[in-house]
């Protein structure tokens, strides 16, 4: 009999897989309460490192062409499709849902990436404006990513909820620091492996596992984070209060559905800034 080689699950920061600097782990259990894996328990210092990674990746990701970002997002869908079985079995193990239901969730997650991928080069066509000002000026409003977004992923939806929280943020050029569902962390970790093997530049998506209760307040109060999506937080009000300190944009829990194969343009726009440029016309 051969002893199986078990995997050590780690964080995903800056495109790399570091252990938590705290050295802590917690036990992920399956739906029957059986031990499934040891998961890295991220700390505030990991959160800090993740923000640094996200910030340094942001301008590059932002200045990639929209076409390129769309291709990268589509590539994620492709890679996800390729590892469908692993996600199905993880979802089943964690939640006890049927294979069919697990497959439906994976379908939705993949389709959501495809849906979001297509938005990258259409946002400004739909949500930008040429403004007919009453004067000899060229005047245009475009949408730009807000910067670094902290995402508290939904606790009850390990894959599609995660995808529908990350995709609307990164499609426009934001980079994110995500705290995965504490209980359903395994698909999030597996998903980081998908990301690592897709064409996504390191640092665009950073995934922390552990207690959102412990880590999220540090992200909410972090002065170099521009927006926070509190969807999966148990203490969303506390996070909103902390976020007010540097006037982060806040997405409150329940603002958007996270279970579908399509997201919401408004969700994408909530994490963008309208920039209006004026220039005189004359020769």
């Amino acid at each position: 009999m051969r002893l199986d080689v078990r995997k050590t699950y780690k964080l995903f920061i800056g495109g790399k897989f570091p252990r938590s600097e705290s050295g802590r782990t917690y036990r992920a259990l399956d739906h029957k309460g059986e031990f499934l894996a040891n998961i890295a328990q991220g700390s505030r210092k990991d959160a800090r490192d993740a923000v640094v990674a996200a910030r340094s990746a942001q301008s590059g990701w932002d200045s990639a062409t929209a076409y390129n970002r769309g291709q990268v997002l589509y590539r994620i869908a492709e890679m996800l499709e390729g590892r469908r079985d692993q996600f199905v079995s993880e979802l089943q193990a964690l939640t006890g849902i049927s294979e069919k239901k697990a497959n439906l969730e994976v379908d939705a997650a993949i389709d959501s990436w495809v849906w979001h991928a297509g938005w990258s080069d259409k946002i400004d066509s739909v949500a930008g404006n040429m403004n007919p000002v009453a004067g000899p000026f060229f005047n245009i409003s475009t949408n730009q990513p807000t910067g670094v977004v902290a995402v508290i992923a939904p606790q009850d939806s390990g894959l599609v909820g995660l995808v529908n929280s990350i995709a609307p943020a990164i499609v426009s050029g934001n980079t994110v620091v995500v705290i995965a569902s504490e209980k359903l962390a395994l698909p999030a970790i597996t998903f980081t492996e998908v990301l690592a093997t897709s064409d996504l530049p390191g640092g665009v998506v950073n995934v922390l596992t552990g207690s959102e209760k412990e880590i999220a307040p540090w992200l909410a109060s972090h002065q170099d984070v521009n927006a926070i999506d509190t969807e999966g937080s148990q203490n969303a009000v506390e996070l909103e209060l902390k976020a007010a300190e540097n006037l982060k944009r806040v997405i409150r829990p329940g603002s958007y559905s996270r279970n579908g194969s399509q997201g919401s343009l408004q969700h994408i726009l909530d994490l963008m800034e309208v920039k209006t440029v004026w220039h005189p016309k004359g020769h």
Partner: peptide, 21 residues
């Protein structure tokens, strides 16, 4: 949120105004 190139302090009801950060 507002960039004025070769002009400044122009306002118009058709033109969005507001800030980042």
């Amino acid at each position: 949120g507002v960039i004025w190139a070769n002009t400044f302090n122009q306002f118009d009801p058709t033109s969005p105004f507001g800030g980042f950060k």
